[in-house]
Write a protein that binds this DNA or RNA. Structure first.
Lengths: 230, 230
DNA sequence: ATAATAGTGTCTGTGAGACATTATGTA
DNA sequence: TACATAATGTCTCACAGACACTATTAT
């Protein structure tokens, strides 16, 4: 290794909500050493040869070329670096949190969505320090879910209050009063972030649900001025 | 440059409050090319040769070695990377926000505290994309100052409400009701983050001030459940 | 009718915001 | 005394939280 350079990668913690309202994480079977054939976070090396315009562009590229996925939301979480996380030597990883639509398909056998909880409690082991990165990304998601509309990126643009409630609860890891969520959705409606479609969804039983539409602004997520679960 | 590696550095945005209650930023006169002799953010290269235990350790080292400063608070802000920010090629910079005590001395002629506002509005130009990094770090500080006790790290451990008010206002960039701040300090007092010393400070005019003491916990900063300036 | 689920209304508590009032020092 | 500044008190408003109540469908 030359004197001034270091091994740097971008890794993605991409989350999706399954039909049981639980979070799954996107993993890829590594093609190359180290840890070939093992399931790991999708990622790419960044260096001058892979003409990425920026680090964010590299993150987008990682999801696009490895999994053909365009996330509905993506943000940089942090960068970790030390001498032991990669057997090849001192290395850096800048990792991102990505939220993808619930119906996102996977075209490849080397890609899979795995139960996030299995990764978090180490029943499903990951190479490198990827389990740690996943934990940090989830902490970020939980923290931001208390005062932003982030969980809405995990459900369809056209959604019901019940779906939104499930998304918030799985992000936060605890129950949320539906009246609290309705109040927040109402405030987003006043700011044009949510519109009432006028349509109804008819479940098997019970009163039909109003169908809302999420109109996310480029500024990422709606920010409330208080935290839920104070 | 070898194929898999990249130039990576850690840069520090270290802020101090001066006696006019304005923020200053620590700059260092670069000894080496590129941009030798110019004022820039203190930072170090990270790679396998400089046995840093971790990225955070490298950040601490950067302040310690370059400026002999131990910050009262430090957190990673983000990592930027692209092909043009450094003339030497594709490079990464992980940058940190550091808050240092108001009486921090500088022992070196190649170190200086410069008015933060001059850097932010480009009257004082910085090399690389350092001005952009400074702007991002300040945004982080302002955002966190609405719902945490971060500004307290800019004043002495033993402080008065007036000093705390000045710190919050300069971090937020706008006026804050002193009653609001008193309420928040009261809540911190109940959680053991602040204690009443019983002493008084006697200014030239007016009623004497109670002297409080900030007892920061290792968990970084006190988090309030609402934002100020809603 | 009954069950099931959606949506609304009511009441309480907390804390920010604005402003008035009192307290305690110096000149 | 007048003045300056600190500290406290009062009132309003917004919103989370808890829970009751009403509404609308299927069976």
């Amino acid at each position: 290794m030359s004197t001034a350079e270091v091994l740097a990668s971008v890794d993605i913690v991409a989350l999706r909500m399954n039909d049981r309202s639980q979070l799954d994480i996107l993993l890829i079977r590594r093609a190359q050493a180290p840890f070939a054939q093992q399931w790991a976070l999708p990622g790419v090396l960044v260096n001058g040869l892979t003409a990425d315009a920026s680090l964010d562009a590299a993150a987008t590229r990682a999801l696009a070329v490895k999994a053909r996925i365009k996330p509905r939301y993506m943000e940089q979480v942090a960068t970790v670096g030390d001498a032991v996380r990669d057997p090849r030597g001192w290395s850096l990883s800048t990792f991102y949190l990505a939220l993808v639509a619930p119906d996102t398909p996977l075209g490849d056998e080397d890609l899979s969505f795995v139960a996030l909880n299995a990764v978090l409690d180490r029943r499903f082991a990951l190479p490198f320090d990827h389990a740690q990165l996943v934990a940090l990304a989830c902490e970020r998601l939980a923290a931001k879910s208390t005062y932003t509309s982030l969980p809405l990126y995990l459900i369809s643009q056209r959604f019901t209050v019940t779906e939104a409630l499930a998304a918030f609860q799985v992000c936060l890891g605890q129950a949320v009063q539906h009246t609290t969520l309705r109040g927040r959705l109402e405030r987003m409606k006043q700011h044009g972030w949510i519109v009432e479609t006028g349509e109804k969804n008819y479940p098997k039983m019970g009163r039909p649900q109003n169908v809302l539409e999420h109109r996310p602004q480029p500024s990422a997520a709606f920010v409330f001025d208080r935290s839920v679960l104070s």
